[in-house]
Nucleic acid binder design. Structure first.
Lengths: 208, 208
DNA sequence: AACGGCATTGGACTTCGGTACAGTGGGCAA
DNA sequence: TTGCCCACTGTACCGAAGTCCAATGCCGTT
């Protein structure tokens, strides 16, 4: 049962079942572990913190793609869903054929934010970002700014899975020096060990 | 100097410099380490392996976003660029204002594939994937299929940066059992240590 | 000249991760 | 019943990772 459809009250829709006969139903509070693709219907309330909801579900989904469904799609909400880690945002009343197409795209690593939404979205983001505080460059790269040049070199290798010994060989320094660099990085970025460091460097976690 | 523009021969264009007066030039073979955003012009040849080129540059860029530039944009090539890890794909003759907007979006974690291209692209992906071999679901999730239920639980926590002790506490088992699970995962997925394991689980590396 | 930041290294130490060799118990299929 | 897989645990060992207390040399600023 690869597809799980979650809603506030656990109720599902005919179109979902027609799209994926072997789907399972669930509630938003509990993400089933058996599903490989999670669909979550936005609760009907007027104001939902979509980013937080998507982030929460995404954390529980843990690697499995999440598609947020909304009955009244809105570009800002789509943005929030993607920001929260969702892989897709689509109309909750979409036809079964559309749902299957979404699953196809998402399943292959793609992103889905609906046909017409896409372009308006881009315009919206460009507008929104242009008026946003000037953090234009280097927001995602915060870790780089706090590290020295050599530390950055080591960081890149570390984030690719290299051991201290390998980093030492590739940077042509001793393992001892690598430990010094790694230690400095852990301190600067507030990480506990090299794995958390790799999450930060790979953009999966925020520094500090 | 946050912006680096790379081309086959190291030559740059006036529009690039007008967009970012403090840009630096470079060749495709060598990605400068000082830049925070990498722009790379597709070599003029008729057939370039865009996915491989983008992947290579992306690996060297190591976390810093990459934008592929093409003088004759093509939706399939855009797909390939994104598949290779690029954050954007845009016309090499784009106006400075457009380039700055692209940088704005990319710098904030967005994706840019050009205005009109976007929608055609989606249609193209859907079409292309529909006729592709039926690997629809579970391609990105290969690691899950090879692990048992408990191993998957441990995998998720591990990939979030938890230590063995923490995993043990959260799964309500002993640290010894966690080590057993982790050991089994390393074996099954061909990883050397938990960091490489996390790269696989987080979709940054391929199993085996 | 004095100072601070950076890169580099050494030695010694503690902790953690990973493995080898065991063992128990439950479920499921031949 | 006899396997086989899975979950779970124990003891013990080794190497990698990370920390602490140093030291040297380079470079740029004050």
């Amino acid at each position: 049962m690869p597809h799980a459809f979650l809603s506030h009250d656990g109720r599902i829709r005919e179109s979902w079942q027609r799209a994926f006969p072997d789907m399972v139903a669930g509630v938003l509070a509990r993400v089933p572990s058996s599903a490989t693709l999670i669909w979550a219907l936005r609760p009907a309330g007027p104001r939902v913190n979509m980013a937080a909801l998507a982030a929460s579900l995404c954390r529980q989904a843990a690697g499995r793609p999440l598609v947020m469904l909304a009955d009244e799609p809105d570009e800002e909400e789509a943005l929030a869903a993607l920001a929260g880690g969702a892989s897709g945002y689509c109309n909750g009343h979409a036809a079964p054929s559309v749902l299957r197409q979404v699953a196809l795209v998402i399943g292959n690593g793609g992103i889905w934010i609906g046909q017409g939404l896409m372009q308006r979205l881009l315009a919206a983001t460009a507008r929104g970002l242009a008026t946003a505080p000037a953090s234009a460059d280097g927001r995602l790269l915060a870790w780089r700014q706090r590290l020295t040049a050599r530390e950055q070199e080591a960081a890149v290798l570390l984030a690719q899975g290299a051991s201290n010994k390998e980093i030492a060989r590739r940077m042509e320094i001793t393992e001892r020096t690598v430990k010094a660099h790694v230690g400095a990085m852990l301190e600067k970025l507030g990480a506990r060990d090299r794995l958390q460091l790799s999450l930060i460097i790979n953009g999966l976690e925020k520094p500090l």
